[in-house]
């Protein structure tokens, strides 16, 4: 048995410790991503794009070429890179506000066109970087800065079901899954499959990862874990939503 190094090889030691708050889900998603890149041996071909949101704190996170873009616009920037140089493996990393609100037209159309890129989205139910406003994914009755009495679904609708939406739009060849930072092994396996899907030129790949934001949730370690592990999956069902050449598998 080989011993897993504490830090993925493609992480950039000079930019560690990273800039996320303690207990933040972003660091865990990027750990799963780092290990996936290592295991696939693609550090020399990856282009990592990060959005505006707390994801931007990862602009120098990896020893891979990286582009920090605008809020919601990482999907088209990575699409542009991939279309111009298909040998590169393009990863668009963003938050739920970036992917499902301001950049939703890009996500929908990249999926429709079956762009050969991988979108990785950290769902933390809030606009974290701007201070915890309501996001498209805020849970019913969950409190947020712009929903101080809790999200009223009559007024503001229900949380976006991202992977389900993408799976419905994307055609054969696409890979779509929802993982969680509560199960990093599974999340890594989804990210690996998504990247492989891109490398094999099959189609669009999309992985959403449930992630914690203890700072804006204002939760201690126990409450953070409970929200991430018990409350969120009630609404956001973890599992693979679309796998090339297979029937849809609903997981866990």
């Amino acid at each position: 048995m080989t011993v897993q190094p504490a830090m993925p090889k493609c992480w950039r030691p000079e930019s560690k410790p990273h800039k996320f708050c303690p207990g933040c889900g972003h660091g865990l998603v990027l750990k799963a991503l780092g290990e996936a890149i290592d295991e696939l041996g693609i550090q020399d071909r990856v282009v990592f794009g990060c959005d505006i949101g707390c994801s931007l704190l990862s602009w120098d996170f990896f020893n891979v070429d990286s582009i920090q873009t605008h809020h919601g616009r990482t999907t088209p920037v990575m699409t542009g890179v991939k279309r111009a140089n298909p040998d590169l493996i393009c990863i668009a990393y963003m938050g739920d506000g970036g992917g499902y609100a301001i950049g939703s037209q890009h996500l929908v159309n990249a999926a429709t066109r079956n762009e050969k890129i991988t979108v990785l989205l950290a769902l933390n139910t809030v606009y974290a970087m701007t201070g915890g406003q309501m996001a498209p994914t805020t849970m019913p009755n969950q409190k947020a800065e712009t929903a101080p009495y809790g999200r009223d679904v009559e007024e503001t609708g229900y949380p976006t079901q991202g992977p389900e939406m993408v799976a419905a739009i994307a055609r054969e060849g696409a890979y779509v899954a929802r993982g969680t930072t509560a199960n990093l092994k599974q999340l890594k396996s989804y990210i690996k499959k998504a990247l492989k899907n891109q490398m094999e030129g099959k189609g669009f790949s999309f992985v959403e990862a449930l992630a914690a934001c203890p700072t804006n949730w204002r939760t201690n370690a126990e409450k953070t874990w409970n929200f991430l592990q018990k409350d969120m999956p009630k609404y956001f069902k973890v599992g693979e939503k679309k796998v090339p050449g297979a029937e849809e598998k609903e997981g866990q």
Partner: peptide, 14 residues
């Protein structure tokens, strides 16, 4: 927006 940002990606790819 996408036309401009994909153009940005295209030039960054060289």
């Amino acid at each position: 927006l996408s036309a401009g940002f994909t153009t940005v990606g295209g030039v960054m790819a060289g």
